[in-house]
């Protein structure tokens, strides 16, 4: 099939963005299992991009390789499953961001390599360029290396498949600009920034269809224990950044403007 892809999206789960986070000894997040979780937002963007790409290229398939405690994965899948079609590969592993990225990458790469009938020549490895938990930007690259893929892109906002099969990639670089690269097709790694797609609507039928694969995938989710890889924590704390705030009331706009302009010039 010309230009069909096997897209593997890697993702972790992170706390829903408005939650109050507090570290406890370990370190770990206080009440980690209690906090509502969501699919990592950058990885979620990459999942939507993957689905759009697969839809545009018949014969393509999207896998979601997700690692978190099984119960949390199950909850989050009830939302994610309604968004786009995918096949879940579930890893029953830790949730938090304080784990080692390279160990995470090793677990993911192993799971990807074990996907039956995965055509590596068509493999596009997707994920967020960083996560909202560890935020290291290490996992996807390392997983790519472990899978032997040396065409890698980070901070991707756009991926276009040209008529000649070349992939045009826009990566975020310094100065609010994009680096434009051309890659001669799969296999390649794409760490996505936000991309350009809106979050898909919840589709109950999509959910039902995905669920047929999700439930068995969760049932056979492999337990994963991550190696610390020599990493230890000296401290983890929420910084006290309270400033002495000066409240300015009843000052005419003109005077405020003068004060602001003077401050800008300082």
């Amino acid at each position: 099939m010309p230009n069909s892809f096997q897209i593997v999206v890697c993702s972790s789960l992170v706390p829903d963005p408005l939650q109050t986070l507090e570290p406890v000894a370990g370190p770990a997040l206080k009440n980690e299992m209690m906090l509502p979780a969501v699919l990592d937002p950058w990885a979620a963007c990459s999942l939507y991009e993957a689905a759009a790409l697969a839809a545009a290229h018949p014969g393509s398939k999207v896998y979601l390789v997700a690692m978190a405690p099984k119960a949390k994965l199950q909850q989050v899948m009830m939302t994610v499953a309604q968004k786009v079609p995918f096949e879940l590969v579930a890893l029953d592993g830790p949730l938090g961001g304080f784990t080692d990225a390279q160990s995470t990458a090793a677990a993911l790469a192993e799971a990807i390599a074990a996907i039956p009938a995965l055509d590596r020549s068509k493999l596009l490895l997707f994920g967020g360029w960083e996560s909202a938990s560890r935020g290291a930007g290490v996992t996807l690259q390392t997983a790519g290396e472990l899978l032997g893929i040396t065409e890698q892109f980070q901070g991707v906002d756009q991926l276009t498949v040209r008529d000649d099969g070349q992939l045009e990639v826009l990566e975020r670089v310094e100065g609010g600009r994009h680096q434009v690269s051309l890659c001669q097709g799969a296999p390649a790694v794409f760490g996505w920034a936000t991309g350009n797609l809106a979050e898909p609507r919840n589709s109950p039928q999509m959910g039902m269809a995905n669920m047929r694969g999700i439930t068995p995938a969760l049932m056979k989710a492999k337990p994963v224990k991550l190696d610390a890889n020599g990493l230890s924590y000296v401290s983890a704390a929420v910084p006290k950044q309270t400033r002495e705030t000066r409240l300015v009331r009843d000052m005419p706009a003109e005077e405020i403007a003068r004060e602001i302009v003077a401050w800008m010039a300082e």
Binding site: M34, A71, Q74, Q75, M78, T79, Q82, N202, P204, G207, M208, M211, T215, M219
Partner: peptide, 23 residues
């Protein structure tokens, strides 16, 4: 909230019902 979350997990773990939030 916590009780619902726990019950939902127990129910879904049976594989016999689907609970769809955000719907």
């Amino acid at each position: 909230g916590q009780f619902n979350q726990w019950v939902a997990n127990e129910v879904m773990m049976t594989g016999m019902a689907q609970l769809w939030p955000g719907s």
